[in-house]
Structures are given as C-alpha cells and as structure tokens.
C-alpha cells in the first residue's frame, strides 16, 4: 500500500539513516527500495519526499565519485 507523504518522508529518512556508514545511497537506489516494499507508490512521490528531506536539512547530497544522499556529517575532506 502506498504511504502518505509524511510516512514516506520518514520511511526514506530511516532508509538513509540505516545505510549510513555501510552503503551510500543514490536517489534511484532509494526509489528502488521504496518501490520494492510499496510497489504502488508513485515515483514522483519519492522524488519530492527526498526534496523535503534535503530542503529541511535532515539529509544532504554528497559527492564521492558520484552523488549520494546521506545524513549530514562532519566533512572528512576538510579535516587536516
């Protein structure tokens, strides 16, 4: 069953949080994981739920040879 907007945002946040330190997730990885559990979820909902998380500062885009979505953390490259 498709999740409501708020439920979807939290679901994605938990996915990203759970993957932190283990696997870097791209937007498409998140979409695939959501659709695996909730096949009737419109793809556009996932896109805008990610946007909500980024705009709210709960998640950030990172670049490490590709663009990923992660929980904000201390910038490793900036350390001496």
């Amino acid at each position: 069953m498709a999740l409501s907007k708020e439920e979807l945002v939290e679901y994605i946040y938990k996915l990203v949080e759970g993957a932190q330190g283990k696997k870097q997730l791209k937007a498409k990885d998140i979409e695939k994981l959501v659709l695996k559990e909730h096949p009737d979820q419109p793809k556009n909902d996932v896109k805008f739920a990610i946007k909500d998380l980024i705009d709210g500062g709960r998640c950030v885009y990172t670049y490490f040879g590709g663009s990923f979505i992660e929980i904000p953390h201390v910038e490793g490259a900036a350390k001496h």
């Binding site: 705009d55 500062g57 885009y61 490490f64 904000p72 953390h73 910038e75 490259a77 900036a78």
Partner: peptide
C-alpha cells in the same frame, strides 16, 4: 568532493 553545497 564531500558534502559542501547550498541548502536544497
């Protein structure tokens, strides 16, 4: 690389 950017 890394996480720098502007909000959103």
């Amino acid at each position: 690389g890394g996480i720098v950017g502007v909000l959103g």
